[in-house]
């Protein structure tokens, strides 16, 4: 049996908001296998963002276990989680989240900076990815000088630069027109075809059809977990 990239066992997340206790996730069990393209859907407040943050090691579970690549990281320290984020996870955000004062190349290099990769190597790897994203002539441009689609390409290049085992996308086309959005989605399909494991949060049913699997959330619980035609691994 293949080892899942992501394995959540009885994962719960609770927030204390003033005197109010909010349960964002209720004892979730979820497995995502290498090479999978999973879409997470649900109304806002359903817990899908919380799930993405947890998968991205930005947050700790209140209860349960999280195994990433077979390694239980539930009890990892803040520094250890930082290291996991920089080496194993690629983030793609709705609002791109590029650093405005850095140019395209430098933005792509940021994760490498925190791994201590040398400047020369970082520039080479970032340059190669930028070229692949069709940004070769934009390397010295600041994010503000790029279109939304280009910015998202920079963000995708940045998420790929560390060769992560898991890519997390939070409504990556939410800020884009449908044509540009489509291009980005095609790019993501391409990456998945190359074997990248992708988890994407979206509202859009059309996008959901591209994925092999759709996980629906409501009130912190998984209400459906379907494989689009494909069989469960």
């Amino acid at each position: 049996m293949r080892v899942p990239i992501v394995e959540l066992k009885g994962a719960s997340k609770e927030y204390v908001n003033g005197s109010l206790r909010v349960t964002a996730l209720r004892e979730i069990d979820l497995q995502i296998f290498p090479g999978e393209y999973a879409v997470i859907m649900g109304a806002s407040g359903s817990g899908k963002s919380t799930l993405l943050n947890l998968l991205g090691c930005l947050d700790h579970l209140s209860k349960g276990d999280y195994l990433l690549g077979g390694e239980n990281i539930s009890q990892f320290s803040d520094d250890q989680l930082s290291d996991i984020r920089s080496r194993r996870i690629g983030f793609i955000f709705q609002s791109y989240n590029l650093i405005p004062q850095l140019n395209v190349l430098e933005n792509i290099e940021v994760p490498l900076f925190y791994q201590g990769v040398s400047e020369a190597e970082a520039a080479e790897r970032a340059g190669a990815l930028a070229e692949r994203m069709g940004l070769a002539d934009r390397l010295k441009h600041k994010p503000m000088e790029l279109s939304g689609g280009q910015q998202q390409r920079v963000a995708i290049a940045r998420s790929l630069v560390c060769d992560p085992i898991l890519m997390l996308a939070d409504e990556p086309t939410g800020n884009l027109d449908s044509k540009t959005g489509n291009e980005i989605l095609e790019l993501i399909d391409e990456l998945n075809a190359e074997g990248k494991t992708i988890v994407m949060v979206t509202h859009d049913d059309d996008i959901a059809h591209r994925a092999q699997r759709v996980v629906c959330f409501r009130d912190g619980e998984i209400i459906s977990n379907d494989w689009n035609g494909a069989s469960a691994p």
Partner: peptide, 8 residues
């Protein structure tokens, strides 16, 4: 952003 990308 930096924290998400791995900054301690």
């Amino acid at each position: 952003i930096r924290r998400a990308l791995g900054a301690r």
